[in-house]
Design a protein around this nucleic acid. Structure first.
Lengths: 213, 213, 213, 213
DNA sequence: TATGAATGAGTGTTCATTCAT
DNA sequence: AATGAATGAACACTCATTCAT
């Protein structure tokens, strides 16, 4: 309590939107869209409720901004993965698995995943954006890589798109587990370890005899 | 105001609660807890809004009833699966996979899964019930079966709990995909086929040389 | 404070809308649309704020209902006035003037007039409805009657529509005066007397014989 | 951040208040007090919202300034009209009618009238100021002139105050008509012509010689 | 002076819950 | 048991007002 006190206002036009989006992500992820209160988002962002409306016209707009921004960093991940070289498929899968494990430890993926799953019916445009710009692209890229490997004789016959899902599913389930059941006492998974074991299991089953040699 | 009036068929009150729960499941699954309106639930159940309160004290209670009831049929599935152990693990996994695929085609699993994932933070007791009474039991049963198979030399070394997750993950992801992205135009998966391919891939990688013979 | 107390609710579906409209008319007339609070309207109607929404979807809808209902009784007045023509114009004008004076003493015309004038720019549809269904019809009917009287040689040459306005203007101004300045201490007008004098003046002129000479 | 910057022309501060008042008049007249937004007033005045508070302490103060300023030019009109007496009353009335028609074509009288009528209940002091300093004075002056004319035998017996109202009412109604109904498609009145016809009618009467007989 | 980002009390609207019928 | 009109607390959003710059 210095005699001067802190200023009641801070003028920070540039930083505010992302501060608000971060706070909103946290609250939306925790509560879902409808149950999230703007009061709480504002409080967490350290601004007044009215200030939210300087940057986002409605609660829905704010939600859209949150979900759309959450795509950005991941897009990078995909592009690098897509660019991922001609080498043997086993290397590629190990590489991607490692990347995924990292991302998942570092970013609030869980919250975003829950938001998208939970609000897809209420915000179909968002589900569409996520599918078209992120999920489908990632899945297609994986599928292409696997199909190419099949053509090279590295991977056994089978639906390559299904193989791609088999590949990422445990990571996704691990994240959901962490978000859903760990907070109520469930034993957590060591996601990187889970993914390592999964890759090796999958490779053993996925690869042809020659590819193993 | 004729004394007779139309001959109103009143359903027996015994059926009302489950009719309401069914309607509520549909709405909660579609909208999430907070965005679900009692008006809509009542309308779908064919009763007045006030009537809901004859059977459920609050919206939360109704939600609890919905989530808890959704456990019941699945519990049966698990118990039979648990009881199925003696033979080789490959048979067990194929059996369970088939059962899962059936259930998933027949029951509104997707909606329930979304509800549990989406509202876990808002209703921790529900997440706990689901974990303790259903998910953890299923996972433990699977883990035990795999561990036993390892002891018998059928399954390669590795974390059996992780193996269990690897096993079910694609089915779960397939269901989520169906709920989330198919409505906005995504290409659906043939879940039984996905699960069949997954089992075979996994078994090839999971089993020891001897078990393959 | 009888031990039983009054019932908290009253079920009066049929009466409510008009009770609410009456209360709303009072408040809108006094404050204007924007400054009128639904809380106050509800309180004056003896219902809760929420109850308003059982009958009117929005504040604007309620306002529309108020303004539109205010047309109904006046429409009757016009129709009879229109039907009244055959005799000499002087009789017709005296008749209508008497009717107007009555209406203006009995109904909350002033509030309605203020509402329509004050909110015409904010609610053009309402201004249009009022014009098309009430004001223009009345003015046209008067104009026709005067034109017919001119054809019969009863009325001097001149724009009959202007004559019609000259005829009703003092009544309107008198009402506005009553609403606007009397509450702050202005000397009121005796509207019937004003109208009687006006009619006679209009019919015979202001000036004395000598003044004309 | 060059030291020079653009050569900004700053208007002298002395002009600001009246610029703001003009803008405010436009917005208040169009929307009414409550529906008028300071944002819009500031924008029309070409200043920031904050700048309004350098000149007016509150929105109400600004409104007061607007309504009070609107009195000034009219006061002049009255004084000259009052000074105009000696000749025959017919000349006086024709003179004043011409002045009124001019004023009404040139100044935003309509908006002011609407403001005063619409907000009289919300701002009684303003209604009082308008009454005491403008309307009552004008009416009294007219009344006195008419009474004097009666004493001179120029005007028939009757309530001179009522005669005064009869005199100005069509002009007022014409202005209100222009503000209220013309924007939604009503046929406008030619106000000077209306007033000319009105004066002559009032002076000589509506009826023909024969009709009187 | 002047700005405009920031505030927060206030209002329209929603909806879970109650209760007279 | 069943209804649905009515309630009122809660929330999204607005806007007059403030203040750091």
């Amino acid at each position: 309590m210095l005699p001067s006190g802190q200023p009641k206002f801070r003028r920070r036009k540039a930083e505010r939107p992302s501060e608000i989006i971060d706070a909103a992500l946290a609250v939306f992820a925790e509560k879902g869209f409808a149950a999230a209160k703007l009061d709480e988002i504002a409080a967490r962002a350290g601004v007044s409720k009215g200030a939210l409306y300087l940057y986002f016209a409605t609660k829905q707009d704010l939600f859209r901004a949150v979900v759309e921004q959450a795509i950005a960093p991941n897009l990078h991940l995909i592009r690098t993965a897509i660019a991922a070289h001609p080498g043997p498929i086993s290397d590629l899968l190990r590489l991607i698995a490692g990347r995924l494990a990292e991302v998942v430890e570092r970013l609030p993926v869980g919250g975003v995943v829950k938001m998208v799953i939970g609000e897809a019916r209420n915000f179909p445009e968002l589900a569409r954006v996520w599918h078209d710009e992120l999920v489908a692209q990632a899945l297609d890229a994986m599928t292409d890589a696997i199909r190419a490997a099949q053509a090279r004789g590295e991977v056994r016959p089978g639906d390559p798109r299904a193989y791609a899902v088999q590949f990422v599913a445990p990571m996704l389930v691990g994240v959901i587990w962490r978000e859903t059941f760990v907070p109520v006492g469930a034993r957590p998974f060591d996601l990187p370890a889970l993914m390592r074991q999964h890759i090796e299991t999958l490779l053993t089953g996925l690869l042809t005899e020659e590819a193993h040699a």
